[in-house]
């Protein structure tokens, strides 16, 4: 169930962290869940070097405006992304920040979660995006794991699927731990 309708998701990170793929997976799974979805992204040099951003809107109704102004769910997977996109959030929105960011930045009003470390434990750092998706479904309940898995089966390369499915589980687990809440 969507915590709010329409539900605005903004995923941000560094180029190469798979932010776009994560957004597409959310959109695809959301569609399977029966929602209308719109997915947009920042594009060009911005997407390749510095902070990369991908947005998804989920709704039971038709979605008129395709951009996210104030996200209900905000993920910052890198320092640049936090600096650039970390500020805007809807009033009762949820802000998730990668723990490594706190080494260099003061992070307030956010759940700080070691997603990169969790990814490393699963296999490779590059699945931090999917760990984040595990966190996303665990904390928001916006889409069910079943549909996210099926979206991954379609969009993730077969060789990497196993590792990604594990990462999804891992994300759910670390999100459940009490200590991350309110971190």
């Amino acid at each position: 169930m969507l915590p709010k309708d329409p539900y605005h998701v903004r995923l941000s990170g560094r180029g190469g962290q798979g932010i776009l793929l994560a957004g597409i997976l959310v959109a695809e799974a959301g569609m399977k869940e029966g929602y209308n979805v719109v997915q947009t992204q920042s594009y060009g040099p911005e997407a390749r070097l510095g902070a990369s951003r991908c947005e998804v809107i989920l709704s039971n109704n038709e979605i008129a405006f395709p951009e996210v102004e104030l996200p209900d769910f905000l993920l910052c997977l890198s320092r640049d992304a936090y600096v650039k996109h970390g500020r805007e959030l809807a009033d009762d929105g949820l802000r998730i920040v990668e723990q490594q960011v706190t080494r260099e930045e003061k992070v307030n009003d956010a759940l700080v979660i070691p997603m990169i470390e969790a990814a490393r434990e699963t296999g490779q750092e590059i699945v931090a995006n999917v760990v984040a998706l595990g966190v996303f479904i665990e904390l928001t309940g916006a889409i069910s794991e079943k549909y996210l898995r099926s979206a991954m089966e379609e969009r993730v390369k077969p060789n990497y699927l196993d590792m990604n499915l594990k990462a999804l589980q891992k994300g759910r687990e670390i999100a459940k731990k009490d200590e991350v809440k309110g971190g």
Partner: peptide
């Protein structure tokens, strides 16, 4: 336009 071209919808 750049937005429609790159946007995904169901």
């Amino acid at each position: 336009d750049a937005t429609i071209s790159h946007m995904r919808e169901n």
